[in-house]
């Protein structure tokens, strides 16, 4: 594992030396380290680049680290990772991707993750994206997540992209069976001429299924963001999506909700609020001694926490 990878790992997965857990480190499309544990098996795919992560039924409280790093320009990384989470398991998956580039050419990481979460299983999925380095080549991260949640399964996705990624198109798709729940918390900050697109489609097909999706984002400079969420209620279910965005400078944010109910007992809600930082918030922090600029930073830091 090279130094850049190690630095990126610290940012995207709070890396602190080899963890006492299952892990797989992807470095410039290769593998820089892997370990399976008694309950969690990690294997390379035979036909495609990527891995299969298999969590045995009933596995409790274990972690899996699967960070991906790109350490220079002109890399076009494509990976397919599949997660099989056995019945009743309860695990935390720390994903995340860092791209470091000091060159002129674009580097990209396309990660396609599929989750098959069995009955009653719980997954906490943590993902951080970051771009670093001084090169002019764009850093592009395009994650695709597809989740299938069986009866009473639970998935929480916490995703954060807080700097240095020039372009991102994020697609998340989920299908929820009876009693399954999905929670998504997305944090996004774009600046300069960055662009970010986030697209959710959640199908609530089982009775009593529920989705709760919260996106908080900040668009600075000339950056642009597009947020699209589509909730489909096929049964008595509940769905809530919320897009809360702060725009600064010449930032642009557009939010498009789509709610489709095929059942009278599907309760679907979308809320969107886009605007600049409230002036009174800045004023309040200034009365505590912060400068206007410090006040803005503090408000954004809290907002994206």
């Amino acid at each position: 594992m090279n130094q850049i990878t190690e630095d990126l790992l610290k940012i995207v997965s709070d890396w602190n030396g080899i963890p006492d857990a299952a892990y797989n480190i992807r470095e410039d499309s290769g593998c820089a380290g892997r370990r399976s544990t008694e309950h969690i098996q990690i294997d390379s795919k035979e036909d495609l680049p990527g891995i299969n992560i298999t969590v045995q039924p009933g596995t409790k409280g274990e972690m899996v680290y699967i960070p991906a790093c790109v350490t220079h320009s002109a890399v076009d990384d494509l990976v397919y990772n599949d997660f099989y989470i056995g019945e009743g398991a309860d695990v935390t998956i720390v994903a995340g991707c860092g791209i470091h580039s000091d060159g002129e050419e674009e580097s990209r990481h396309n990660g396609i993750h599929r989750f098959f979460i069995e009955k009653g299983a719980k997954v906490l999925y943590l993902e951080k994206h970051i771009g670093t380095g001084k090169g002019s080549g764009a850093r592009v991260i395009n994650p695709v997540t597809e989740a299938t949640l069986a009866e009473d399964a639970y998935m929480e996705m916490n995703t954060t992209q807080i700097g240095g990624v020039d372009s991102t198109v994020r697609k998340t798709k989920a299908t929820l069976q009876q009693g399954a729940k999905m929670v998504v918390k997305e944090k996004l900050l774009t600046e300069g001429t960055q662009r970010a697109e986030s697209d959710f489609v959640i199908n609530l097909i089982g009775e009593g299924s529920g989705a709760h999706l919260v996106s908080r984002s900040v668009a600075k400079g000339h950056s642009e963001q597009l947020f699209r969420s589509c909730l489909v209620g096929e049964a008595a279910c509940s769905g809530h999506s919320e897009c809360d965005a702060i725009i600064m400078d010449d930032g642009k944010v557009s939010a498009t909700p789509e709610l489709t109910a095929h059942n009278v007992d599907a309760a679907l809600i979308h809320e969107a609020a886009i605007g600049k930082i409230a002036g009174e918030q800045i004023t309040k922090l200034m009365t505590l001694g912060l400068t206007e600029h410090e006040a803005e930073e503090k408000i954004i830091e809290g907002f994206l926490r």
Partner: peptide, 27 residues
């Protein structure tokens, strides 16, 4: 400015306190 006056030692508890998303009481 407000900031400069705060630094000199003036404080103001608002009639209508301001609410924040993401800042805690201890912050």
């Amino acid at each position: 400015s407000v900031t400069e006056r705060a630094a000199l030692g003036i404080a103001y508890a608002f009639q209508q306190p301001v609410r924040f998303k993401g800042l805690t009481v201890s912050d």
